[in-house]
Nucleic acid binder design. Sequence first.
DNA 1: GTAATTTTGTGACATTTGTCAAATGAAATC
DNA 2: GATTTCATTTGACAAATGTCACAAAATTAC
Lengths: 189, 189
Amino acid sequence: MGNSELQDTLKSYFPILKEGSLNDIVKHSSYLKSTKGTKLISEGKRHHYIYLIVKGSVKSYYSKESKEVCVWFSLENEIIGTTSTIQGDASKETIELLEDSELIKLNIEKIKELAQTDLSISNLLNNLWKEHATFLEERLYQLQFMNSHERYKVLIKDTPEILQRVSLTDIASFLGVSRETLSRIRAKK
Amino acid sequence: MGNSELQDTLKSYFPILKEGSLNDIVKHSSYLKSTKGTKLISEGKRHHYIYLIVKGSVKSYYSKESKEVCVWFSLENEIIGTTSTIQGDASKETIELLEDSELIKLNIEKIKELAQTDLSISNLLNNLWKEHATFLEERLYQLQFMNSHERYKVLIKDTPEILQRVSLTDIASFLGVSRETLSRIRAKK
DNA sequence: GTAATTTTGTGACATTTGTCAAATGAAATC
DNA sequence: GATTTCATTTGACAAATGTCACAAAATTAC
């Protein structure tokens, strides 16, 4: 992917950005391909990038005592990163590729710097935070209000592709149940 | 609370704001006292305000079939609102005063408008979103990773004041357990 | 294609939690 | 201070879920 292609892609994702601001961001971005299993962000480490998934899929998870709990999955056309990374802290989560993927890597440190003086970039970050918060609230709602059967139904209704592309082990932890319980939920339908 | 007092208070909460930007916000803010049980924001309705708690406490909850599930509590010195309200949609949650309270009411519609052209306000909104997202992630982590005993322990460790000022019924739904289960958790300690 | 490995499903049982009913305790009202 | 009302606790039981062990299926490696 050439530089002008990169620009075109980012432009379509960030339509509210002014031309000059977009250029500034492109300067701190790069295209990359990476293989399944690659960790874009590792728990406990400081990172300086967020990513746009051009092709492929990723999971984000916390781990404790060799157990993993998935926080979210992302497929094509989504912006991903961890809140702790964006705040400049060591990441609390790990982000790992579930498939061979194509990504655009954006230097969030630089973008945050730009946002200090660039209104259009600051507004862009606002939008990203807003979307992320909305996602998290929806997830909390589901965990607090729905039982595991209902949460599974919502998942297959809203993002059926996840079922095809993510292991049931990961989906189970995402839904907040054991692998076996998810198996039984699926058997009943 | 006079206008200059209002200005001083808001200044201490939003130190990153430039003087002029602060003035613009003060113009769309007002001080108010309100009694326990008052709903600042009602589920299903459009609202245009966020609030700063000067004194008092509030809960935010979803309701379904006459059951309430608490999403969060706030005490003094916190900014509160609902994501749906801020986005201009009908609110998904209800925000209700748990005690007689003193508040500063800020017109979020106007603030958002200002943020379109005012960098310092846009950056302020970014900070607020960031804090909110961090809170939500921490909560998700606790719900996915800890059992109810552990979640209760975290609550009494991090915000013991909540125990004194919020009913156990509300706390139970916040922790994601029934009232009776919370009673038993407490009995065991 | 076969073997090895990983993922998913199933059974049996223990544990946790929810639910309903009733009892106790605390707070508000008169 | 007695009474009413509301909040919290406790008991008994049912339902849901976790855990462990193993079987079946699917995937990967050879």
